[in-house]
């Protein structure tokens, strides 16, 4: 099913986490909405195969990779176009040109870096944008180098390099929350030293602000690192329970009824007493009468 939304609601790192964990294949289009007073909007296209990024570009004319090759001065547009026609139908253009000895592996890597890593990482700073993921869009072999990057790797690189976090500010975990690991062993991702240090605290017992203090990091920096661990599937944010400050309720005095229920809930022994089978059957039977 097509997924649509706005980056302000569901951020690009979250989207990448979703497409990777869902092993999705298709086309992610992001339409920038940077300045509502102008009609100038830019589309960014990211093609994915099985949750991995295989190509990116700003147009759907299938000429993006050829233009990049021409810009580098490695070959002319027309020469690439002619060679492309000799490629096998499902072979990525970059790989085809490498097999023909026209491009080297290093050149291919450079193309992929320019086409995918640089373009996509720049999108993390977008304040908002409309997105659509179309799982039915075909993969464009003429835009593909044949190299791939996991969405997680792109997220990690993009967020490490991100200077302006305003666009993601609301998505950062709360400083009073803790982190809890969701992987059984040590992460296989190549974390940087700060990320490893924060990772050591993913046991759900210390608030991010306290982790920051422990590691002598600004709280915002610790939040950003925590966010990276979350969107790369290594940790989850867990709210820590604060003691209930009576003044914080901002309530009028509770009614006797409210007080009564509060007592019922809190005064019992911990845990829920088991219920009988006849109870369950009666309940289900009763509810079925309401369906």
């Amino acid at each position: 099913m097509t997924v649509t939304g706005y980056l302000a609601d569901f951020s690009l790192p979250e989207l990448f986490q979703l497409v990777e964990q869902g092993n999705k294949t298709g086309l992610l289009t992001i339409c920038t909405l940077t300045d509502p007073t102008t009609i100038a909007r830019h589309n960014h296209h990211i093609w994915l195969s099985q949750g991995q990024i295989v190509a990116a570009g700003n147009s759907l004319d299938q000429q993006g990779l050829m233009r990049l090759i021409a810009q580098r001065g490695w070959m002319g547009d027309r020469a690439v176009s002619r060679l492309a026609q000799t490629c096998q139908i499902h072979t990525p253009l970059g790989l085809c040109l490498k097999n023909q000895g026209v491009l080297t592996a290093e050149q291919l890597k450079l193309l992929f870096y320019t086409q995918v890593m640089r373009q996509v990482c720049a999108l993390f700073a977008l304040p908002d944008g409309w997105f659509q993921f179309d799982p039915k869009a075909p993969l464009p072999v003429s835009e593909m180098t044949g190299l791939i990057a996991t969405a997680t790797d792109v997220t990690l690189s993009g967020l490490r390099a991100l200077k302006d976090w305003n666009a993601l500010d609301e998505k950062l975990p709360d400083p009073s929350s803790a982190l809890i690991s969701v992987v059984e062993s040590k992460p296989s991702l190549r974390l940087n030293p700060n990320e490893w240090q924060v990772w050591e605290f993913t046991n759900g017992t210390m608030a991010i602000k306290d982790i920051a203090q422990q590691l002598n990091l600004p709280v915002a920096k610790a939040q950003q690192i925590a966010f990276r661990l979350i969107v790369t599937g290594l940790a989850e944010e867990m709210p820590m329970v604060a003691a209930p400050p009576p003044a914080a309720f901002e309530l009028a005095a509770p009614t006797p009824l409210e007080q009564g229920f509060a007592t019922t809930v809190t005064a019992d022994a911990a845990g829920a007493a088991p219920v009988s089978q006849s109870f369950l059957q009666n309940l289900v039977g009763f509810l079925k009468g309401k369906v």
Binding site: P239, V241, A242, A243, P244, V265, T266, D268, A270, G271
Partner: peptide, 16 residues
């Protein structure tokens, strides 16, 4: 709202 999360704790401890 998460600033009332102490209530989450109280309620979930007793839930079936």
């Amino acid at each position: 709202q998460s600033r009332f999360d102490f209530m989450w704790d109280i309620l979930i401890q007793k839930a079936h």
